[in-house]
């Protein structure tokens, strides 16, 4: 294939990979086309090589990740941090003993009537400690479940 034909095809062919393939095959073999291109020595004279950068300071691989790599923290700092953590935990444990714990009161429920298995019942009396308790009934959905709990009655 002549150079002019290849160049015409390169411009005329619509798909870039085809054009590149055609021209690539041609320029590898065509001395005339290669003569129009600048050789390696010429290109090297226009740019930099690694040898030209001998005096450049080294790169810092992790500079973009938040500055230079930090040295490990000294032992006294780690010991102080440990002491501080133990002191905070101790103080929290001591404070927790000062706060009185709320215990749930014991209660009794007397069910007086049960009919149809567990489907119906009546609560005659409920007490929390010595005080009467008030029932609260909650039906969360249409599934038939009923939740009953007892609260201290307000006197």
């Amino acid at each position: 294939m002549s150079c002019s034909w290849v160049r015409f095809a390169y411009r005329a062919l619509p798909l870039a990979p085809w054009r590149a393939f055609l021209l690539g095959r041609h320029i590898d073999r065509c001395p005339r086309c290669q003569g129009e291109a600048l050789g390696d020595a010429g290109v090297r004279a226009l740019g930099l090589t690694a040898a030209d950068l001998a005096g450049e300071p080294p790169l810092r691989p992790f500079a973009a990740a938040g500055g230079p790599v930090r040295a490990a923290s000294p032992a006294w700092r780690r010991a102080f941090a440990l002491f501080l953590a133990v002191a905070v935990l101790g103080a929290a444990a001591w404070l927790s003993r000062l706060i009185p714990r709320q215990r749930l009161p014991e209660g009794t429920v007397t069910v007086v009537e049960e009919a149809g298995g567990a489907r119906a019942f009546a609560v005659l009396e409920a007490r929390i400690g010595d005080a009467p308790a008030r029932p609260v009934v909650f039906k969360p959905g249409k599934g038939g479940m009923t939740i009953v709990w007892f609260e201290r009655s307000a006197h």
């Binding site: 990979p17 393939f21 690539g24």
Partner: peptide, 10 residues
């Protein structure tokens, strides 16, 4: 593609 790379260089 390799051809494209070669053409870029050329």
């Amino acid at each position: 593609s390799e051809s494209t790379a070669r053409v870029h260089v050329y």
